[in-house]
């Protein structure tokens, strides 16, 4: 597409009120050139189709399927409706469900209370332009870049009971991945390791954007480093703080890959996402039952998404 129509459009754009008056089909609307209208239509339609096709349809289909006992075999017409049976089974007779919910919550708490603050702290340290800060930055960010398969493998080398680094060095016999009382913490360390780097980078970018004159002013007023951070820098970084919070919540809800790599989300490492996959994907094909689990997860996610959107929109109104 040439630049020409866009330039024309720029010239042709009337004051905003022109398009909003009624009888818009009239002469004034044509001020938008044909190309403009095609572009605008496409810009609305394509994302709309993508969102509908890739997000809303699957989501609605999941909710609908959760009321059936479909096993992935046979035409749609043969799908049998079983009502809330899947939900009843999930809650009452499916032993991994309760641990999964607990583990998801634990995951959220661990990332929120431990990993995120450490990431923020490291970002503040790196922002001080220490010697070799580039090196630290790279080292800390590396886990985010590595593929999960590789991360799973690295930690397997560290945690293996008989051949692992940890037991090898300290001579212990702890079954890091197998003991259900221990493995969730071992995995949380691995997850936190990655999360810290991610948060650090996000926060560092934000810190670089803080106006240095604010700090100078604080220093001139005799404020200490700590109180400058908490009373000046931290409040100024409110948008970044919200993003960090949201990222933390999202990361803990969609936590999946690490436990899947380790033991497919069993034996102490149950997560709702892993249970969905166990049931839906693969030979098991308990699609109805798995969809019920997915719907529960969707409902939980919606709570957080709603809170986030509500906050953001209220912010915009101000």
């Amino acid at each position: 597409m040439s630049d020409l129509p866009l330039i024309q459009a720029d010239r042709a754009v009337p004051p905003p009120a022109a398009t909003t008056t009624n009888g818009g089909r009239g002469r004034r609307l044509r001020l938008l050139s044909r190309t403009d209208r095609v572009v605008v239509t496409l810009m609305v339609l394509v994302p709309l189709l993508l969102v509908t096709g890739l997000v809303w349809l699957p989501a609605v289909a999941t909710v609908l399927l959760s009321g059936t006992n479909w096993d992935g075999i046979g035409p749609i017409s043969e799908i049998e409706w079983v009502g809330a049976k899947n939900y009843d089974d999930v809650v009452n007779i499916y032993p991994p469900f309760v641990p999964a919910v607990q583990n998801n919550l634990l995951w959220l708490a661990a990332l929120f209370v431990v990993a995120t603050p450490i990431g923020m702290f490291l970002a503040v340290l790196l922002d001080k332009e220490l010697r070799g800060s580039r090196f630290y930055q790279t080292a800390l960010y590396l886990p985010v870049v590595l593929s999960l398969a590789l991360i799973g493998f690295i930690w397997q080398l560290i945690y293996s009971r008989d051949q692992g680094l940890l037991n090898g060095v300290f001579g212990g016999e702890t079954d890091w991945y197998g003991d259900p009382n221990v493995n969730i913490w071992a995995v949380l360390v691995a997850a936190g390791w990655r999360h810290v780097g991610y948060i650090m980078l996000l926060y560092l970018a934000g810190l670089k954007g803080v106006d240095p004159s604010l700090r100078e002013a604080a220093a001139v007023d005799g404020s200490s480093e700590t109180s400058t951070f908490f009373r000046v820098v931290f409040p100024v970084m409110r948008p970044i703080n919200i993003i960090v919070l949201v990222v933390t919540v999202i990361e803990s809800l969609r936590a999946f890959d690490l436990v899947w790599v380790i033991n497919k989300g069993r034996n102490g490492l149950e997560l709702i996402s892993a249970l969905v996959t166990q049931n839906v994907v693969g030979e098991a094909s308990r699609i109805g039952f798995g969809s019920a689990l997915a719907t529960i997860m969707l409902a939980v996610s919606l709570v957080f998404i709603t809170i986030y959107l509500w906050t953001v929109m209220r912010e915009d109104k101000r």
């Binding site: 989501a59 999941t62 399927l65 969905v276 996959t277 839906v280 997915a294």
Partner: peptide, 9 residues
Amino acid sequence: SLLAGASGA
């Protein structure tokens, strides 16, 4: 899409 159960759909 996996998490949304889209694979089922």
